[in-house]
């Protein structure tokens, strides 16, 4: 699977090491926030005009643009967080994100492109913990005041057949 814009570019080894450190720290903070359920701060990880898409690998491979979640801009991220917190009806659940295999694809000025694998475990009340998604993040980060923000995040999942629904963010 090739995602346009996420090809491996030559990256200076020192820059790559620094970028990897920052990206790993970003993932840890992002996952911590979501796993603890603080969804209302979720939007703080994004730039104002970000793009955030969750889609099945079958769509990505066929170049089909649909998103299971498709947010253009931080305001849409805020609206989704608000909806999930205040208007949506769903059974209580815990999620745990596991992110690994970080690859730094390109570093240019304040911009970093990276690819990482993720696993998303879900636990429902009186249910077992199940693997909800196995997927890959294709990320474009923007460094602002020493901190990374998501300019673009494509969450592309292999787990084509979703177990009923995906409520909380990936």
């Amino acid at each position: 699977m090739k995602i346009a814009g996420y090809e491996q570019q030559p990256v200076d080894a020192r820059l790559a090491r620094e970028a990897r450190w920052d990206v790993e720290e970003f993932h840890a903070a992002y996952c911590q926030l979501l796993d603890l359920g603080d969804i209302e701060q979720w939007a703080d990880f994004f730039t104002t005009d970000c793009l955030y898409i969750i889609t099945a690998r079958e769509n990505a491979e066929a170049d089909l643009p649909v998103g299971l979640v498709y947010a253009e801009g931080r305001d849409m991220i805020r609206d989704r967080a608000f909806a999930v917190r205040h208007t949506q009806m769903f059974a209580p659940r815990y999620l745990q994100h596991f992110v690994s295999n970080v690859l730094i694809l390109a570093v240019a000025g304040n911009e970093i492109r990276a690819q990482s694998n993720y696993q998303l475990l879900q636990t429902l009340v009186e249910g077992p913990t199940t693997l909800l998604q196995a997927g890959r993040y294709y990320d474009t980060f923007w460094r602002e005041n020493g901190r990374l923000l998501i300019e673009e995040r494509r969450c592309i999942y292999d787990t084509t057949l979703i177990a009923n629904d995906l409520v909380l963010p990936v």
């Binding site: 969750i54 643009p65 649909v66 998103g67 299971l68 979640v69 498709y70 947010a71 253009e72 849409m76 989704r80 909806a83 208007t87 949506q88 009806m89 769903f90 059974a91 979703i162 009923n164 629904d165 995906l166 409520v167």
Partner: peptide, 26 residues
């Protein structure tokens, strides 16, 4: 097309309407 994609957040297994139907039926 982008408008349709944005509005697509209403439907599907992560849609604001779609996911609630799936939960209620379950």
């Amino acid at each position: 097309t982008r408008h349709r994609l944005r509005q697509g957040n209403l439907m599907g297994p992560s849609g604001f309407l779609g996911l609630e139907d799936n939960e209620a039926i379950k």
